[in-house]
Computed example of a mutant assay.
Amino acid sequence: MPAGSKTELTDMRLRAAKPTTKPYKLFDAHQLYLHVSPSGGRHWRWKYRYDGKEKLLSFGAYPLIGLAKARAKRDEARRLLADGVDPGVAKKVRIEANVAASRLTFEKVAREWHEINASQWAKIHAADVLRCFERDIFPGIGAIPLRDLTPPKILETLRAIEARSAIETAKRARQRVLAVFSYAIASGLTDNDPAEKVGAALKPLPRKGRQPAITDIKQLRVMLKAVDDDPARPVTRLALRLIAFTAVRPGELRGARWSDLRIWKENPRSGASLLPG
């Protein structure tokens, strides 16, 4: 009925509302009404005054937005108005925030984190980290907004890595996801780290058996010749030969001083005694 009475609406009246040659309104309490257009569109609207001006706020189409939900939206807008907030402006800000959050995907934040940290890393390590993201992580969760990521979704991505029998790679990938979320939390982009909760669900690393060892002198000569013939840089080949003589770890050799070489040479538990005097 055009310009219906201002008594509260009922679901029966709403279902019976049909389009006419002219638009009309079905009023509910506190300035809420359903606008019915000649084309058949039915939309909830709420009229209010702010800063001395009459304004209109839309709550969506009926029946997608039912009577109860329309009233709840109206009551929330009235509470904002009572607090001195323009409900229309608050709605616009909320929509803009939701759009911005949807664009803030995990991949976007991860690449930002990588770019900031890459300058502090060796080029090989920086490339390895990015390759891990692009190969193992982005296909599963890269396109998902940061705020929508859940522990089960992250675990699903890590499980796919474990399925390749790459358990250590899965654990390393989780550490990198953790680092991205730590950066995001510190930057105010999110306040939750879903990757923190999935560590206990990952498979444990298998126990390492004894490391392979060459005990035959002929095999050792073959290995050393292969090292010498390798197309690596000369310093790399020399480092490998020195490791064979000293039995030290690569990290120890990298940071070694001349005084360390003297200690290794005198160490009877390794092949360091083979070092030239």
Rank of each mutant, 00 (worst) to 15 (best):
E8P: 10
A244I: 01
A101E: 02
C132W: 01
L274Y: 11
V177I: 15
P145I: 08
N117F: 02
K171C: 02
I95W: 00
I137H: 06
V129Q: 03
P38H: 10
G271M: 12
P204N: 11
K25I: 00
A160Y: 00
G84R: 11
I217N: 13
T157Q: 04
A110Q: 05
R164P: 09
E196I: 01
Y62I: 00
G84N: 10
G60L: 01
A72N: 12
G52W: 06
N192D: 06
R79H: 08
P151F: 09
K108Y: 05
G84K: 12
A160N: 11
Y50V: 07
S37N: 10
I243S: 08
I95E: 14
D191K: 11
K208Q: 15
F245H: 13
A143D: 13
K18R: 15
T236V: 14
D148P: 05
G4W: 03
K265H: 10
R15Q: 15
R237N: 06
D75E: 12
T246Y: 04
A200G: 14
K55F: 10
L220R: 12
L274N: 07
Q219D: 15
A173H: 06
P38Q: 09
G52I: 02
A184Q: 03
M1S: 14
A29G: 05
Q31W: 03
I167M: 01
A179G: 08
R174N: 07
K18T: 13
V198Q: 01
K265W: 03
P206R: 15
D148V: 04
R249G: 05
A3G: 10
P152K: 04
L178F: 09
L274D: 07
D260P: 01
N98D: 14
P2D: 01
